[in-house]
């Protein structure tokens, strides 16, 4: 089982879907079921109200996941009280979320539960620390590639990406887009010193001068940069606490000093720039780095879409493997293969 043993090497692994219905829950359930048979304490939580917030937007119920004896989990008060398993409360967070406080517990008698979790990175980190103190060797995070959530799956040590027909019917497009996301995940990480300097900044665009000092450019968000264009050109190193979009890259690309410009973003999920624009900027010599970096360890695909469309699984897997040089698994056949 190379897939499971690879996961268990890491202290934390995020499972993030490129789109809804790409098989995130199936993947998570598969991992949990396999690990339940091993002697390895695992914990699980989620980012935000529920990964991709489906119940908030479409009101479709979020699928519950099955947890086994001895597993540790964190979910919101609301979902804790709706649990269909016996579990021992071990920690109650002080912070309130939209669904109440965050409850951490240990499964006494296996059953189902809906996961929800913190939407801020530092709280997610706190939860992961609590899991570790309670004995979890690997923490799984039901993640999201969503701009709505501040918490990023990039803080986990490793990442499992799920994709499939729900994201695109076109195998080539699917491969292309996945490749782009992997390019973003692989962006270089800043050094520890710079990370400490920037990690607590919540908004705005900031400059870093030659001496490594932080400079306020008085730009509240990337959307406001056009009003203060000259401020942007004062320093070569820029930090964006929010999202990176085409507009800013297009502006910076045509500047004389583009070769020296280094843009820093929180992590790959904050990049909403299109592939062409981003790569045009990089081609001109500009650099993009991230504060948090994770490692992608595998890809799972769901060849079927909710509309019933089904891609050729074997072909899809082979093409993705060739293009990405990563292990690729079909969620529907995971159980059969192993």
């Amino acid at each position: 089982m190379p897939f499971i043993s690879e996961i268990l090497k890491y202290a934390s692994v995020s499972i993030a879907g490129m789109e809804k219905n790409t098989g995130k829950t199936e993947t998570l359930n598969y991992i949990l079921q396999r690990v339940s048979k091993l002697n390895h304490c695992i914990s699980v939580t989620s980012i935000g109200l529920d990964g991709e917030q489906s119940d908030q937007v479409t009101h479709t119920p979020k699928p519950a996941i099955k947890l086994y004896n001895g597993m540790i989990f964190t979910t919101s008060e609301k979902h804790y009280l709706e649990r269909q398993l016996v579990s021992e409360v071990l920690h109650v967070s002080q912070k309130q979320t939209a669904l109440g406080r965050l409850i951490t517990a240990k499964v006494v008698l296996e059953g189902k539960i809906t996961l929800s979790g913190p939407s801020e990175t530092h709280i997610l980190q706190e939860i992961l620390d609590i899991h570790a103190t309670l004995g979890a060797k690997t923490s799984l995070i039901d993640g999201a590639l969503s701009r709505r959530s501040h918490a990023s799956p990039a803080i986990s040590k490793a990442l499992l990406l799920t994709t499939g027909a729900a994201f695109s019917f076109d195998i080539n497009k699917l491969i292309h887009q996945t490749k782009y996301i992997i390019q973003l995940i692989d962006l270089e990480q800043v050094n520890t010193q710079t990370k400490h300097l920037l990690q607590s900044i919540e908004n705005g665009i900031w400059g870093i001068d030659k001496n490594g000092q932080l400079r306020d450019l008085e730009i509240k968000t990337a959307f406001h940069f056009e009003e203060k264009k000259p401020n942007l050109l004062q320093y070569n190193t820029l930090f964006l606490a929010g999202v990176l979009q085409d507009k800013l890259l297009n502006f910076l690309r045509i500047q004389d000093n583009v070769k020296h410009i280094e843009l820093i973003v929180n992590d790959f999920t904050k990049i909403f720039a299109s592939e062409t624009v981003l790569n045009a900027f990089l081609q001109k010599g500009g650099k993009i780095k991230t504060l948090y970096k994770t490692k992608i360890i595998a890809l799972t695909v769901n060849p079927t879409s909710v509309q019933g469309y089904c891609l050729n699984s074997a072909l899809l897997q082979q093409k993705l493997k060739d293009a990405l040089q990563l292990p690729v698994y079909d969620v529907r056949t995971l159980n059969n293969n192993h």
């Binding site: 016996v86 021992e88 409360v89 240990k106």
Partner: peptide, 17 residues
């Protein structure tokens, strides 16, 4: 420090579980 409805509260519950 943890808490759940322990088997000790009811022999019936313990059997069912």
């Amino acid at each position: 420090q943890g808490f759940y409805i322990y088997d000790d509260y009811s022999s019936e519950l313990a059997i069912l579980r």
